[in-house]
Design a protein around this nucleic acid. Structure first.
Length: 464
RNA sequence: UCCUCAGUAGCUCAAUGGUGGAGCACCCGGCUGUUAACCGGUAGGUUGUUGGUUCGAGUCCAACCUGAGGAGCCA
């Protein structure tokens, strides 16, 4: 007997009506009386369960089956019957049930709602719950949608390195990569650690961004993107930070900051539209149980044109608001979380690009504007999350770039390869980074990054 | 790293400084169509840890541990 996936039954239920089929999956709930048992199984192929009806008269192992524990794996042969008047669209009337793998009474997931905190402690099992089943299927679909978006537009996907020797992004603390014996470190004559003895002959780290290497590829392929894991050793304890997270980083040659914003806006809308059409069941679940109003908010994003204001305008708006912020607003200071939220949630109530930040608070590679005090940076702020995208037009002028590096105490000779890109046809180019998890949080309404990553790595937590 | 809050049965939570309970789950039994099924019963506890105050501490105090929320840092 060939096994049918539950997703196929949901998609083609009329075709299977009345036919004898085989299914297999794990028991989610089991309700037994002395003549009937109702078993709901989930086979992992879709969010929904399949209800199986077992009649004592038909099943010789009825007593055994009706005592099975939740999460036991079973294989069932039965007749599919449409039940339009029932809560479920159809059910399987079992003629034969086999136990594929038993479970145990101490299975930690019960037939009731658990707290997200509790489920975090059983991350190896939580994917079997409704919420995490929906979250991680959506994560998979969103990941695919990102590749589709860029591939459809001719972008080349570049696998930027995970291990890097350049600590230049200034993007937080780095995880060190070494093969040295930490109990017997080689010393130089100056009594410092001799990294020439290390695997790469110098200090190495886990990457914090693939941007610099993506730039190199953009100047060969024109439009490229990298999508991979990045690492920050920050001691951050928030719902929005993890030590290991994924970033989407497109980089486009012959593009300026406006092209950059256009692409970012188009991408955000594409991704939302994609999951709304391809994950209807999961999105309905999020809208009902996780974040009421989610659908309205996402539809609103699709229909609205993202606001675009400069940093200077943003500061003026904040000063004019008369609101009493815990951090004072002043030109030259970076916008605080409360400022960003006020702009996107109170003033505009939709995504807002803030551009042209003071050069002193931004990275060295951002292109200096003609006013000599700001750079062509852009951050996308969204209601509920805050900053979701950070990007810029890159400094393509060799001398300006060297000057910016020196000002931020980065030795130009340590990044000669990056400077070379400006020497050899280094045209104007721009790119941005999207925090994949933050996008996923925005789309699902989930409030904690630890519930968006299959096995999250955060401070003091690398279980599983 | 800083601030705030919390920790009681497997889970979710009660308990005025005075005999630690309930619902669900588990286990046993009942029930002929259930939908987080329903009904009855059994069992389940060093109240996060250590110390202190008190005749008496789950409750008050201190430190630590763990978790959560917010901030900083950032995506």
């Amino acid at each position: 007997m060939q096994h049918i996936n539950v997703v196929d039954i949901y998609e083609n239920k009329e075709q299977y009506d009345g036919s004898l089929i085989g299914v297999r999956g794990w028991i989610r709930t089991l309700r037994a009386s002395n003549a009937f048992a109702f078993i709901e199984i989930n086979d992992g192929t879709c969010f929904q369960n399949l209800q199986i009806v077992v009649e004592k008269e038909k099943a010789e192992n009825f007593d055994f089956i009706s005592k099975l524990h939740i999460s036991s794996a079973i294989e069932v042969i039965g007749k599919l019957i449409l039940t339009p008047e029932g809560k479920q669209p159809f059910e399987l009337n079992a003629s034969d049930i086999m136990l594929a793998a038993g479970s145990s009474a101490d299975y930690p997931l019960q037939k009731k709602r658990h707290s997200l905190e509790y489920l975090r402690e059983i991350a190896h099992l939580r994917s079997r719950s409704n919420t995490f089943s929906a979250v991680f299927r959506l994560r998979s679909v969103l990941s695919y949608a990102i590749h589709r978006f860029f591939q459809e537009r001719g972008f080349v996907h570049v696998h930027t390195p995970i291990i890097t020797a350049s600590d230049c992004e200034g993007a937080g603390e780095l995880f060190r990569v070494t093969t040295l014996d930490l109990n017997h470190l080689p010393q130089t004559k100056e009594q410092t650690i001799d990294y020439t003895e290390d695997f790469f002959g110098k200090e190495a780290y886990l990457t914090v961004s693939g941007q610099l290497q993506a730039e190199a590829f953009a100047l060969a392929f024109q439009n490229v993107y990298t999508f991979g894991p990045t690492f920050r050793a920050e001691n951050s304890n928030t719902t929005r930070h993890a030590a290991e997270f994924w970033m989407v980083e497109p980089e486009m040659a012959f593009a300026d900051i406006n092209d950059n914003m256009d692409m970012a806006e188009e991408m955000i809308k594409y991704l939302i539209n994609y999951v709304l059409t391809h994950c209807k069941t999961e999105m309905a679940f999020f809208n009902q149980f996780i974040d009421p109003g989610l659908m309205d908010r996402l539809q609103n994003i699709l229909q609205s044109e993202f606001e675009r204001i400069t940093y200077t305008q943003a500061v003026a708006l904040l000063e004019k608001s008369g609101k009493d912020f815990s951090y004072p607003v002043a030109w030259g200071c970076d916008l605080q979380t409360e400022h960003e939220r006020y702009i996107t949630e109170e003033i505009y109530k939709k995504p807002v690009f803030v551009t042209d930040y003071p050069k002193d608070i931004k990275a060295f590679y951002m292109r200096q504007n003609d006013d000599n005090i700001t750079v062509a940076a852009m951050d996308l702020l969204v209601p509920g999350i805050g900053e979701i995208i950070g990007g810029s037009q890159r400094e393509e002028r060799y001398d300006y770039l060297v000057a910016a590096m020196e000002k931020q105490h980065i030795a130009p000779e340590s990044m000669q390869w990056y400077l070379d890109l400006r020497k050899y046809g280094g045209c104007r180019h721009a790119g941005f980074g999207l925090g994949f998890e933050r996008m996923l949080m925005y789309i699902t309404g989930m409030k904690n990054i630890r519930d968006i990553i299959p096995f999250a790595r955060t401070v003091n937590n690398a279980e599983f």
